[in-house]
Simulated scan of single mutants.
Amino acid sequence: MTTFALSLPRAVPRRTLVGVAALTAVVMLWSSFALSTRALEGAGLTMADAAIVRFAVPAVVLSPWIPRTLRTLRTERPTVLALVLLAGLPHFLLFAWGAHLTSAALTGLLVPGTVPVFVTLLLFLCVRRTVSRRRVLALAAVVAGVAASALFTGGPTGPGGIAVLLAAGLVWAAYTLGVARTRLDPVGVIVIVSITSVASALLLAVTEVLPSALLAGTADLSTVGSYALVQGVGTGLLSTACYVVAVKNLGSSLPAAAGALSPVLTAVVAVPLLGESLGLGLGVALALIVTGVAVFALSPATPSGQSTPR
């Protein structure tokens, strides 16, 4: 019997295939994160409740890996660890606050859409990495999309929500650079982020800095269970692991850019699920940002003749 060899596995490195598969999962899971966070108020949960559920699930599930992670932390650089921890409660609270002030489509658009801009800016400021002209133009399109969303988003809370979401994008960009340099494996990243975040969220709830329906005993258990599945398992475990795998296999720039494709899915699903509408301003912003991300991902990282450090 004649056998035929497939050329794809030989043409594409295995780590690239793994990274692309991980990125595909990230796009879908980030979209579900934006949608569920925007629906937080209707579910009767506070931001503190959502943070506790979001980080408690992976902390409990991965508790057997805590001793190993703590041993690895002894050799971790404090600056890198600080960047990694930004992905926990700081990013979550900014994201949830911004979602409260805006729409699901805008939430899903601005945070991942601006991460490539901030990653490139931080790399330039920290290591003086130059950027190719095509990527500069692509990032300019992203910036124009952000400006369009700020200009055409109506309501008194629109600009404030956009500012908060931009801060969330900056925090995630810093985390992305930290992940690319950490000695922790994907499980270790999830463990340390989850433990520190759930402890911090519980402290804020117990001290009443943030209100909590869970501690007050008024939260609906079925809602908590559903949220634990979407946020705790989907976002807390799967999306974090997939993002770390993508960064480890593809570097920091491409995952940061490709993740911005999740707004398309978020914006489309938000229409029937949350009753939102796609206005002209959001449509323009969506087109500019997604186009900028696509050009960014397909362009060389640096001007020709220069190498790109990972």
Rank of each mutant, 00 (worst) to 15 (best):
L288A: 11
A287C: 14
I192P: 00
A148E: 14
R14D: 15
P13T: 15
P78L: 04
T69F: 06
R181L: 12
S239M: 09
G155N: 11
A138I: 01
A39P: 02
G234V: 08
G145K: 10
T302Y: 15
S262P: 00
A141R: 06
T235Y: 11
A297F: 12
V187F: 12
A180V: 08
G113P: 10
A287M: 13
E208N: 11
F152L: 09
L17G: 13
G305T: 12
V61M: 02
L110E: 15
A50R: 09
V119I: 02
L29E: 06
V136N: 08
I66T: 11
L274N: 02
T114F: 14
L94C: 02
L288M: 13
V271Y: 12
A25P: 12
V143H: 06
A297Q: 14
V53T: 08
S239I: 03
P272C: 09
A34I: 06
A287W: 09
V293L: 02
S36A: 11
V244P: 04
L8M: 12
L274T: 04
V57E: 06
T308F: 14
R77I: 04
P303H: 09
V117A: 03
V20G: 03
V131N: 00
V193I: 06
V290S: 03
T308N: 14
R310C: 15
V143G: 07
A216G: 15
G42N: 12
G158S: 03
A163M: 08
I52Q: 07
G44E: 09
T24Q: 11
T75A: 13
A56S: 13
L73I: 05
L265E: 10
L23A: 14
L288D: 07
L29Q: 06
A141D: 01
V269D: 02
L8W: 10
V247G: 10
S197A: 04
L237Q: 01
G178M: 02
A258Q: 07
S307P: 14
V233T: 10
A104S: 02
P263G: 11
S197Y: 01
L288G: 10
A301I: 01
A21V: 04
L288R: 05
V18G: 12
F55D: 01
V27I: 12
S212F: 11
A140S: 03
A11E: 05
R15C: 13
L110T: 14
V193C: 09
K248S: 15
A260W: 13
A51M: 04
S239V: 10
V127K: 07
V26F: 05
S299D: 15
R128V: 08
V171N: 00
T107S: 04
S7T: 14
A138H: 00
V247M: 00
L110R: 01
A167F: 04
G154E: 15
L165P: 04
R134S: 15
V245K: 13
P272R: 07
A104L: 00
S200V: 01
A219M: 02
V27P: 02
P255N: 04
E276H: 07
P67Y: 12
G279K: 11
L40S: 14
V111Y: 00
F55A: 07
S149K: 06
